[in-house]
Nucleic acid binder design. Structure first.
Lengths: 174, 174
DNA sequence: TCCGTTACGTCAGCCTTATTGACATATCTC
DNA sequence: GAGATATGTCAATAAGGCTGACGTAACGGA
């Protein structure tokens, strides 16, 4: 496709042509993600929050009743890292913790009204970008992109992600 | 599609249905990116590098002769942040700086052989994930995903990115 | 030739987000 | 009652980003 690296043939690539053909995905994923997360960042600073808070708030709002362990598995960070941002979200009244009913060791996480509003405001910003993208490339490309992105996820995690994305909702009581 | 938030109707969303329909893109982009960057991370620690080094090395390798200003525009970080990682890459012999010919104020960045090898090893890891994804969802979905991801980029930046991704290669001499 | 602008480097201090390791507590399960 | 599990927390550290300020070299036009 492009003439990149024509003067510098790859020394160790098993298949230069195929390696090369992946640059577009690698780079467009980088640029799309770069701009994708930049929108909410502006709002978040007004609340004294960062991206880490956004991620927590998003998944708590998306799946009310989420446990700490499940959140750790989604975010792939340590509990110490999670605890700091979660504590701030709770202290500022965006997330509420309730003791589990079946298992009282668990702390189920719920968004407050305030938390839900913020989560939706952030999603709306990202949604606007997504809708503008769909206007450009069409709904079919969005559907295909979803399939491609899904296939990019670790195989062991796809079932879990599928359930979360397409089967989410209130799960645990109170 | 899903029953998420059924018990908690969005308070401020202009269009709940459309906001909701974006959750899949928001989340799959998060999970795909999470796993996508996790592969190179393992190699990078062996060299004492992090993701920031990877990004710099990738674009320097992709576009030999890149200037500092262009790299800053790609990465969207401050020159102080860039300088730290770039200095380490130069000190460890992965990137070479040469004074510009037309404009002697510029420092043109080139990968060394060592740098090119590392960049390609990292790209290869990501390429393997991409190829596995294509095996699952097909080449058409990949092409569509590229169009969608491209449309997700800031409008002002699309020309620049298009040139970089599809028209890259050696640009500035010696 | 002088002067303003540009490209880059650097010092200093700070913030966020992540890490590892260790230990405490409450609760479940057997 | 004992061990495993879910969570909370203290402490130290690292990576990667930021702002602000200042310096130097080179370009470019008046």
């Amino acid at each position: 496709m492009s003439g990149a690296l024509a003067e510098a043939p790859p020394a160790a690539a098993t298949d230069p042509a195929e390696t090369q053909s992946c640059f577009d995905v690698i780079e467009l994923l980088f640029f799309a993600y770069r701009d994708f997360v930049s929108d909410p960042d502006r709002i978040l600073t007004d609340y004294g929050f960062g991206r880490a808070h956004h991620r927590v708030l998003h998944f708590v709002n998306r799946q009310p009743g989420l446990t700490i362990a499940e959140l750790l598995d989604i975010l792939r960070i340590t509990k110490q890292s999670l605890n700091r941002v979660l504590k701030e979200l709770v202290e500022k009244g965006f997330v509420e913790q309730r003791t589990g009913v079946q298992d009282r060791r668990q702390r189920l996480l719920f968004p407050t009204v305030k938390g839900r509003d913020l989560a939706l405001a952030l999603s709306r910003m990202q949604g606007e970008r997504i809708r503008r993208a769909i206007d450009r490339c069409g709904e079919d490309d969005r559907q295909a992109a979803l399939r491609f992105l899904f296939a990019m996820i670790d195989e062991n995690d796809r079932d879990h992600v599928a359930r979360l994305v397409y089967g989410a909702g209130e799960r645990k009581g109170q």
